[in-house]
Nucleic acid binder design. Structure first.
Lengths: 177, 177
DNA sequence: CAGTTCTGATTGCATCTTGCAACTGGTTGT
DNA sequence: ACAACCAGTTGCAAGATGCAATCAGAACTG
């Protein structure tokens, strides 16, 4: 049923337009963000731990669309017959630079909260080198790629999370790890 | 001017979420794209020369929202008592890196047409240096900033347009200058 | 100076999308 | 057996979108 992906008559062949046709709504990128930076992989995690309060039918619909577009994938959780694990594909992982730029713009021009801006700031300051390191990490976690040798210490997400908690600790309840 | 920007009860203070609340729909970025890369400054130009066929009521609504958010501004055209000129603000101009990243992703992962991908490719290859040059150019055109001395030859948009026409010339009718 | 065209929009209406709350069928833990 | 948990689905109201027609004022055209 997901075989018909190309026949849906795009508005135009412009790369920006095509991207907007896939991701141009208020929820799709929020879900990818939670998977990427919050490491949420199950339906319930994406539903209940979502900062913005997504509805379950919207979540189900967007997960379906993102799968059809090949941005994420879904497998059975071997430990729980009923649990599904959602993963980013390479196509999804490579949205990281887009997030970095969007985060930088939002941090500069919109009333972003101090705590939630820390990740964006670090990602911006780290530049392409940090993005590459994070993307490598995501490939290990989501695609099962072999881990890079000679890269000890906490991963990029752990570092971003630690920085967030250092700022958020005193002002609000920190979300579960 | 837009004094009531903070009171609209955001879903969350996350920079990515806030950006999506402003630009997360299928048309807003299309309009900014046409203003930025197509140099369209009038309602009619944005309406009739739009590749994707935006409806006039949607265009009017989005122009209103983008103005309320401070991404664009509107002035009277002195030559025509009825014409309005829309301009990018600094906030709007600084969306360029976001476009560059979105364009790069769309070009790589979606079925973008050859001709319409050329601009995205050049923007990607040019990197931050080219983006800065283009943003300076936009500041001159849209904000009335003094032009940089010692930068002769065609501007960035003209170069992107020339590259587009070189590819599109043989396969389709080129849009009017 | 009448008629046509051009300007930036607005209106009505049908259809698609979104949001909320309740609910389902099955699984797991006690 | 029973409650809690899992990934969703369903029904319905409200809002957003798309299309075509229309509008009023300003500007060219003869």
């Amino acid at each position: 049923m997901a075989a018909d992906k190309e026949n849906s008559a795009h508005r135009s062949g412009c790369p920006i337009n095509l991207t907007l046709e896939v991701l141009g709504d208020k929820w799709s990128l929020i879900i990818v963000r939670d998977m990427m930076f919050g490491n949420r992989r199950h339906f319930r995690e994406l539903l209940s731990q979502n900062e913005e309060g997504i509805a379950s039918n919207i979540l189900a619909d967007r997960l379906r669309r993102l799968m059809a577009e090949g941005v994420i994938s879904k497998e059975d959780d071997p430990s729980h017959k009923q649990k599904a694990i959602y993963s980013l594909t390479e196509k999804g992982i490579e949205l990281l630079p887009v997030f970095a730029m969007i985060g930088a713009w939002g941090r500069k021009w919109l009333p972003a909260s101090e705590a939630l801006s820390v990740r964006a700031r670090l990602l911006e300051e780290g530049g392409p080198a940090l993005w590459d390191e994070f993307m490598e990490e995501l490939r290990v976690e989501h695609l099962g790629a072999p881990p890079h040798a000679g890269r000890p210490g906490p991963g990029v997400r752990a570092r971003l999370q630690a920085a967030f908690e250092a700022v958020a600790g005193g002002e609000e309840n920190a979300p579960a790890t």
